[in-house]
């Protein structure tokens, strides 16, 4: 039981990190109708920028610096490329983001090489005992920060003028424009928000294998099964999907370690994704569209 609780907590922590990344995907998808395959590279770049800044300044400043740089990068990509492709087919846009993803990935390799670096998590390797359950401090910090960030995002969407404008834009660009909502600005806002979530996720994701390496960008693509499971257009679904994937991976890596050379847990999220696609193609929380004429 103790082991299960420990693993469960780890799974939730990892799942929340995936949830942050998945949420970014969904926000961009809803806000600008773009499925951004380069999002994983935003996560990687966030981690590397923290890595570079960390020896030079306090943690909070390094984090803010990484957010600023990654958000700036996201805005440049959105402005130069995505907005120029408004009205083009989804395939064109998706291929463009795949191209950007490859470019950013290779930029990371050129600057920082293929090697691994130490984790950039905000807390060290210590543990905290809760009853008989031993929890890593990094997981505790991950859960605490993720919950706060998710609550803040929910508040932003539900309670602020720009949050409402973003939801309106996601619902119908034409109707949003007709209300005087600057849709171009909403595109930028959704990308900036996604990039912020990517950097937040990156510092915690880097504390799961406890290293920063170029593969972190690919690791972030695990958010894709999370989104499909939760529903492409549901913010709530992104977080739930992230949790499902995180728990599956952590529990699977322990309890199923005898099967398939111990790699089965890496496949399981995709198996779940395919099952959801077959049974409920719009995901657990996605909408089939409730429009009525």
């Amino acid at each position: 039981m103790t082991l299960f609780l420990q693993l469960g907590f780890q799974g939730i922590a990892l799942g929340l990190v995936y949830g942050l990344i998945a949420l970014g995907f969904v926000i961009m998808f809803k806000g600008s109708h773009t499925f951004n395959f380069a999002h994983g590279q935003f996560v990687a770049i966030g981690a590397y920028v923290v890595l570079v800044l960390l020896p030079r300044m306090p943690y909070v400043l390094a984090f803010i610096g990484a957010v600023a740089i990654t958000v700036g990068l996201a805005l440049v990509v959105e402005r130069l490329l995505i907005r120029g492709l408004i009205g083009r087919s989804v395939t064109v846009v998706v291929l463009a983001t795949l191209g950007i993803s490859t470019m950013l990935h290779n930029a990371v390799l050129m600057v920082w090489g293929v090697g691994s670096h130490d984790s950039v998590g905000p807390v060290g390797a210590g543990t905290t005992k809760v009853g008989s359950v031993v929890l890593p401090n990094s997981a505790l910090a991950t859960v605490a920060v993720s919950v706060v960030v998710l609550a803040a995002v929910a508040w932003f969407f539900q309670r602020t003028r720009h949050g409402l404008a973003l939801r309106a834009t996601a619902s119908s660009q034409e109707a949003a424009l007709a209300q005087g909502i600057d849709v171009g600005r909403m595109f930028a806002l959704s990308w900036a928000l996604a990039a912020f979530l990517a950097v937040t996720a990156s510092i915690f994701l880097a504390s799961f294998p406890r290293v920063v390496s170029p593969s972190i960008g690919d690791l972030a693509l695990i958010a894709i099964p999370a989104i499909v499971i939760g529903g492409m257009d549901s913010l709530m679904g992104a977080v739930v999907g992230g949790l499902v994937v995180g728990l599956t991976q952590v529990l699977g890596s322990n309890y199923l370690s005898d099967i398939g050379g111990g790699r089965l847990h890496e496949v399981l999220p995709y198996v779940l994704m395919l099952l959801v696609l077959l049974v409920r193609p719009y995901g657990l929380f996605g909408s089939r569209s409730i429009e009525r004429v």
Binding site: L164, A165, R167, A168, S171, E174, Q179, I181, I290
Partner: peptide, 19 residues
């Protein structure tokens, strides 16, 4: 008409006051 179908009536109205 093009109301925002997923938003409540109150939210639709609030969006109209955006500017």
């Amino acid at each position: 008409r093009m109301v925002f179908p997923g938003l409540s009536v109150a939210e639709n109205l609030a969006s109209g006051g955006h500017v």
